Computed example of a mutant assay.
Amino acid sequence: MRSTRFAFLSAAILLTSGCGSSGDTPDLGQVSGIIKVDGNPTPNVAVRFAPVDGGRPSTGTTDDTGRYELVYSTKLMGAKVGTHNVSIVVQSQGDEEIDPTQMGLPTEGDTGNISDIIKTAEVTSGSNTIDLEFP
């Protein structure tokens, strides 16, 4: 009887503890989309979704077709469910010449007028397609 009670209690503790899973990971939604600048899909753009209510931001980088997918951490894809401030920054790619100032976008390390290009997006549970156009 005593060993049955111990086994039941041990199982209950393991189930409620999540077997080592992190209790501070918020609900996440999978997020992907296309970033367009002046109506054109734009490659080599870093995308950052920062939760308005605080917490870890999610990031991604657009591919050659302007498509991005957000990463929450090294092990988790997506972004925290809720409202986010979204910002973008053009990234240099090796020898390729990119003139972000002609696109009206900030470059890496630029602290200029970045607030002019912050958008708001809502992330929900499940899969989210969030296409954004700048400026």
Rank of each mutant, 00 (worst) to 15 (best):
M1P: 11
R2Q: 12
F6R: 14
A7Q: 01
A7P: 00
F8D: 05
L9R: 09
S10T: 15
A12L: 15
I13Q: 04
L15E: 02
T16A: 11
T16L: 11
S17V: 06
S17C: 05
G18H: 08
C19T: 14
S21G: 03
S21V: 04
S22D: 15
S22G: 10
P26M: 03
L28A: 11
L28S: 12
L28F: 13
G29E: 00
Q30K: 15
S32E: 04
G33K: 01
I34C: 01
I35D: 00
V37C: 06
G39M: 01
P41A: 10
T42N: 01
P43R: 00
P43L: 01
N44V: 03
V45D: 02
V45Q: 03
A46R: 14
V47N: 05
F49W: 13
A50N: 11
A50F: 08
P51I: 07
D53N: 13
G54A: 08
G54H: 04
G55M: 03
G55S: 10
T59L: 12
T59M: 14
G60S: 09
D63L: 10
D64I: 14
G66V: 07
G66Q: 11
R67E: 02
Y68V: 06
Y68E: 06
V71G: 07
Y72A: 00
Y72P: 04
S73P: 14
T74A: 11
K75Q: 14
L76N: 09
L76I: 08
L76S: 05
M77C: 09
M77F: 15
K80T: 13
K80C: 02
V81H: 04
V81E: 03
G82I: 06
T83W: 10
T83N: 13
H84T: 02
N85A: 06
V86P: 01
I88P: 00
I88L: 03
S92A: 14
S92I: 11
Q93L: 15
Q93P: 05
G94M: 13
E96H: 12
E97G: 08
I98Y: 06
Q102W: 07
M103K: 13
M103I: 13
M103S: 10
G104W: 09
E108L: 09
G109M: 05
D110S: 09
D110G: 08
G112C: 09
N113K: 15
N113L: 12
N113R: 12
D116P: 12
I118M: 13
K119G: 06
K119W: 04
A121I: 11
A121G: 10
S125Y: 15
T129S: 07
I130Q: 00
L132Y: 07
E133Y: 04
E133T: 15
F134W: 06
P135N: 10
